[in-house]
Amino acid sequence: MLGVAVGFVLPPMLVRASGTIPEIAADLRLMFYLIAGFTSVLFVFILLFFKAAPPSPPSAAADMGNSLDSNFLLSLKKLITNRNYVLLLISYGLNVGTFYAISTLLNQVILTYYPGANVDAGRIGLVIVVAGMAGSVVCGLILDKTHRFKETTLSVYAASVVGMLIFTFTLDCGYISVVYLSSILLGFFMTGYLPVGFEFASEVTYPEPEGTTSGILNAVVQIFGIVTTLLYEWMLGTVGDRWANLTLCALLAFGTAITAAIRSDLRRQAAQNTTKQ
């Protein structure tokens, strides 16, 4: 998420908003070379230092899960027939798809009310993600203390709806500082939801491999992100940002209702408690 945050800030600083096509092309080329160089260094570090697994399992439940035979196709069949997991796929996809749509078209939305505020648009994106990083930590602490995965997931999801509504109705207030504040609230809950959803998925699908569970979750999210972004872009050009944002609010409200329908079947916690006994 820190990388996403940097991705909001650097492009407006590196690429000139007003300039000739050759100048913008040169700026983009420099930015792409920097990204290629940085990710190449990361690739080398991963080859040299990244381990396949920790020296010991992080929990007794994980240890027991690792001892089970893993068959990808069988695991996939179990996951797609797991009612709770399918509902979580949909609700998670709606939330993250909404985040992708906003982050992709944030510059266009901000410039509608604050012309020339390209750098501010990048900083608002930074604020959304950094607030979400703080939300992730807070939600993680809550999960560690309470182990109430469904309640936490549902609360954060509902708060995302509220944050989106506030963001929608403060865009045209005329004070970009207010937009910064509403973005903090939106990011804290919407981006903070991301790790909570992953943890909840691991709970309701145990003992299926978490790599498969999270992989499918990520794949479905990309599909939702593409569809939601295209819908948002079309609505921005057709009916304006107010109705486009209200549509995203409706999607989040629908996702909240789906989350409420997920049963709190905490299989990983049950396995952990059984192993301790």
Results as ranks from 00 to 15, higher is better:
residue 252 L to K: 00
residue 202 S to A: 15
residue 196 V to Y: 00
residue 207 P to L: 06
residue 247 T to L: 09
residue 220 V to F: 15
residue 196 V to M: 02
residue 204 V to N: 10
residue 184 I to P: 11
residue 234 W to V: 11
residue 183 S to V: 12
residue 184 I to C: 14
residue 193 Y to M: 09
residue 187 G to L: 04
residue 242 R to H: 15
residue 222 Q to L: 08
residue 244 A to G: 06
residue 189 F to K: 03
residue 211 G to D: 00
residue 231 L to T: 10
residue 228 T to G: 05
residue 193 Y to A: 11
residue 184 I to M: 12
residue 187 G to D: 04
residue 187 G to M: 04
residue 178 V to G: 10
residue 193 Y to C: 06
residue 217 L to S: 12
residue 214 S to K: 00
residue 239 V to H: 12
residue 226 I to D: 10
residue 233 E to K: 14
residue 205 T to R: 00
residue 173 C to R: 09
residue 227 V to Y: 14
residue 173 C to G: 10
residue 203 E to M: 09
residue 225 G to W: 09
residue 245 N to D: 03
residue 224 F to N: 12
residue 255 G to Y: 01
residue 174 G to E: 12
residue 249 C to R: 02
residue 184 I to F: 14
residue 190 M to E: 01
residue 235 M to H: 07
residue 250 A to I: 15
residue 252 L to A: 01
residue 192 G to M: 06
residue 229 T to G: 07
residue 191 T to P: 06
residue 209 P to T: 02
residue 186 L to Y: 03
residue 205 T to E: 00
residue 190 M to H: 02
residue 185 L to G: 06
residue 243 W to G: 03
residue 213 T to K: 03
residue 223 I to E: 05
residue 241 D to F: 12
residue 234 W to G: 11
residue 220 V to D: 11
residue 214 S to E: 00
residue 186 L to R: 02
residue 219 A to S: 12
residue 197 G to W: 00
residue 215 G to M: 01
residue 243 W to F: 05
residue 180 Y to D: 07
residue 202 S to C: 13
residue 180 Y to S: 05
residue 253 A to T: 01
residue 241 D to A: 12
residue 201 A to Y: 07
residue 216 I to P: 03
residue 210 E to W: 00
residue 255 G to N: 02
residue 229 T to N: 07
residue 247 T to S: 15
residue 222 Q to R: 10
residue 234 W to A: 15
residue 191 T to V: 11
residue 215 G to S: 02
residue 226 I to V: 14
residue 228 T to V: 08
residue 181 L to S: 12
residue 226 I to K: 11
residue 225 G to R: 08
residue 182 S to Q: 11
residue 194 L to A: 05
residue 233 E to H: 13
residue 252 L to V: 00
residue 206 Y to N: 05
residue 215 G to P: 01
residue 199 E to N: 02
residue 230 L to G: 07
residue 221 V to Q: 05
residue 244 A to K: 02
residue 181 L to T: 12
residue 225 G to E: 09
residue 253 A to G: 03
residue 217 L to Q: 13
residue 211 G to E: 01
residue 247 T to M: 14
residue 238 T to N: 14
residue 200 F to I: 10
residue 238 T to M: 11
residue 201 A to M: 08
residue 218 N to I: 09
residue 237 G to Q: 13
residue 188 F to E: 04
residue 229 T to H: 06
residue 211 G to V: 01
residue 219 A to W: 07
residue 181 L to P: 10
residue 242 R to D: 13
residue 182 S to G: 11
residue 207 P to N: 09
residue 214 S to V: 00
